[in-house]
């Protein structure tokens, strides 16, 4: 019974990733693409977590942390690029 629930959850997460992918490709503006990129990252984390629950193992926890760290840093870098036009600046002017 729980396997059916978990499998349904994974299918629904994959549908969500597909819809976010449509927004990444079509997105009229750059912030739309960045936000949907972050949504894809969160959904990937959820898929890996549910997969670990199905297989009843703790081996996927590092994968969750790695995806979370990379999604965090890439979202910050994209946001700073949209806001300032430069990601790593030489010297702060304040």
């Amino acid at each position: 019974m729980t396997t059916i629930i978990f499998t349904t959850a994974i299918v629904l997460f994959c549908v969500a990733i597909g819809m976010a992918l449509v927004r990444v490709i079509k997105g009229p503006s750059l912030p739309d693409r960045v936000v949907s990129f972050d949504v894809i990252g969160v959904n990937l984390i959820s898929v890996v977590a549910v997969l670990g629950a199905i297989l009843n193992t703790a081996a996927y926890l590092e994968v969750i942390l790695i995806i979370a760290i990379l999604a965090f840093i890439s979202t910050i870098a994209f946001s700073k690029y949209i806001e300032r036009g430069v990601i790593i600046d030489r010297k702060r002017n304040n």
């Binding site: 790695i66 760290i69 990379l70 840093i73 910050i76 870098a77 700073k80 990601i87 790593i88 600046d89 030489r90 010297k91 702060r92």
Partner: peptide, 21 residues
């Protein structure tokens, strides 16, 4: 991959602050 994760921490510092600091 340990080195890659450590370097991502340093890169996060460089993004949040600036190169000189």
């Amino acid at each position: 991959i340990g080195g890659l994760t450590l370097s991502s921490a340093v890169i996060l510092l460089y993004i949040a602050f600036d190169v000189e600091s």
